[in-house]
Amino acid sequence: MTPLLSVHGITKHYGTHIGCADVSFDLYPGEVMGIVGESGSGKSTLLNCMAGHLAPDAGAVVFDTRTDGPKDTVTMSEPERRMLGRTDWAFVHQHARDGLRMGVSAGGNVGERLMAVGERHYGDIRNRATDWLDRVEIDAGRVDDRPTTFSGGMQQRLQIARNLVTGPRLVFMDEPTGGLDVSVQARLLDLLRGLVRDMGLSAIIVTHDLAVVRLLADRLMVMKSGRVVEAGLTDQVLDDPQHAYSQLLVSSVLQV
């Protein structure tokens, strides 16, 4: 089987400071991988390098494109990479306002990616937007409301709908449940799990919340000071961590 995403030696420096160093892994279709580590461990830098938001100093991010097979997205042309960003890739920001257009209605937010890939039939766009609002459990009657009138959890679900409407194959998530109430978090996690299973999505989730990765991720990468210190099956890394830092991380979680 060809990996959907194959990351080789991704390195990013900020001056003399290491953002992330020599990270490599393969992600296969349908796999969900979690990246955990404390603030400043380089997990967000890595995510942004992979998603094309940051140019890495070294390394390759090879994506198995629909038309041309595996291609390095670091060296591909910018239009091509941005096109991936609107079609096969999705990016869910921690703060919904970074990923939504707050001045545009919910329907317009969901429809934007469709229009960006050439959809020009208003009725169809609106029907698909409404369908997606329903799938993320937002009342279809709110299709014309702006996200400023939505709660935090609804905004996050709207952001997910907006990202998934073009049927991407790979979703990058940066702390998708951060800043939400626990009850809202649980609902969102359940929703994400269902969507990942039903759409056969692959996902890379950056978070510092070990409970989130236990529920969502098949695999786990533990980062510290820009480097991957341990990687493996999620429950194995969490229940039998091998590296000193992973052990510290796992033992630091408060038991409820």
Partner: peptide
């Protein structure tokens, strides 16, 4: 048991 399940390495 956990080793056989792959939960422990």
């Amino acid at each position: 048991m956990r080793m056989i399940y792959g939960n422990y390495l």
